[in-house]
Amino acid sequence: MVSDKRTLKAICTLKRLLDLLDQAGGPVPPPGLFAALERYKPNRDELAKYQAFSRGGYRRNLIHTGPGYQAWLLCWKRGQFSPIHDHSGSACGVRIIQGVAAETVFRKRRDGRLVRGKTFTHSVGTVIASVDQDVHTMGCMADAAEDLVSLHIYSPALTGMKFYPEELVVKVSPSRSRQSALASIAPVRGVSKRVKRPLAASIRASKARRG
């Protein structure tokens, strides 16, 4: 088991990152997952063999399947976005490798309709943390300076996503839309949700709960 002190250091290779996550022996606790992604220092060369784009839509490239997670490299050409979706029982940690990601979040109402929230832009090095029923869409703006590449780790492994059609998004009046337009755009930000609990501590707690 890796000590807390050692875990706090930078994770400098993809293999080291995956080895740490494998130590959980099952689903990785979200705090540990997000903390590991924050400490990971990507090497573009070691990720290059997984990088592939598609003109028909963003492309998901499988890197590794662990005991309780999967790691994917997602590649987005300019103008490509995911549908509105959640992660259906999985936590998802994302680290931006190249480009700038645009993410719009939604709030689910009791009647099942969606309320559009803020749109965030995430620069290289940002870690985006989401869990289970968080609803969002993500992609690469059409006028971006370069295509987008992002590392996604789902725990447990993602077996399906729930998609939400645009028709479920509550429409706002034009006047209200204009008034809220500036307020709804957030600036480029760094790590979206910072998690202080070390990865090793989270893994030990998870194993203790499983007995």
Rank of each mutant, 00 (worst) to 15 (best):
K77M: 05
V169G: 03
S177H: 13
G117V: 03
G117Y: 03
G57S: 13
F34V: 00
S173W: 09
L158A: 10
Q133R: 15
T121N: 10
Q23T: 10
C92D: 00
G66F: 01
T137S: 12
S130C: 13
R209I: 09
I203L: 10
L37G: 01
C12T: 15
A71P: 02
L62Q: 12
K207T: 06
G32E: 01
A71M: 03
A52S: 14
I153W: 03
F53Y: 15
A157L: 06
E146Q: 13
I63P: 01
M138F: 08
P27L: 02
V172E: 13
G211H: 10
E167C: 09
V131E: 11
A36R: 02
G117L: 07
D86R: 05
W72L: 14
S175N: 09
N43P: 06
G139C: 03
V94W: 00
T65Q: 14
G66S: 03
L20N: 10
R209S: 13
A145T: 09
A142F: 01
A35C: 14
A145V: 07
P156R: 07
S130E: 15
R113D: 05
L18K: 10
G125E: 04
L74C: 09
F163A: 11
R116L: 04
R204M: 11
R39I: 01
R116I: 00
K5P: 00
D86T: 02
L17H: 08
M161K: 10
G66D: 01
H85K: 11
V169C: 04
R78W: 01
R113M: 09
P165Y: 09
K9Q: 15
K193C: 11
G25F: 01
R176F: 09
C140F: 06
T104Y: 02
T137M: 12
R194K: 14
Q179V: 06
G211E: 11
A71F: 01
A145R: 14
P30A: 12
R113H: 09
M141Q: 14
Q23I: 04
P174E: 08
T137Y: 02
T159G: 15
G25C: 04
L8C: 11
A91D: 09
V115D: 11
S88Y: 09
R16V: 04
A129R: 04
I63A: 05
V188K: 15
H122I: 00
G211R: 14
R113G: 03
D147K: 07
L158R: 12
M161Q: 13
L151F: 05
T126R: 07
A208V: 11
V2S: 10
A201K: 12
Y69L: 06
K5C: 06
A101E: 08
V94Y: 00
W76L: 03
S202C: 15
H122Q: 12
V127G: 04
F53A: 04
S150N: 02
F163H: 12
R189N: 11
L168A: 08
A205V: 04
G190D: 14
L148D: 02
K196Y: 09
P27H: 01
I185G: 03
R209M: 12
I84K: 07
P187W: 08
S180Q: 14
R113S: 12
H87E: 07
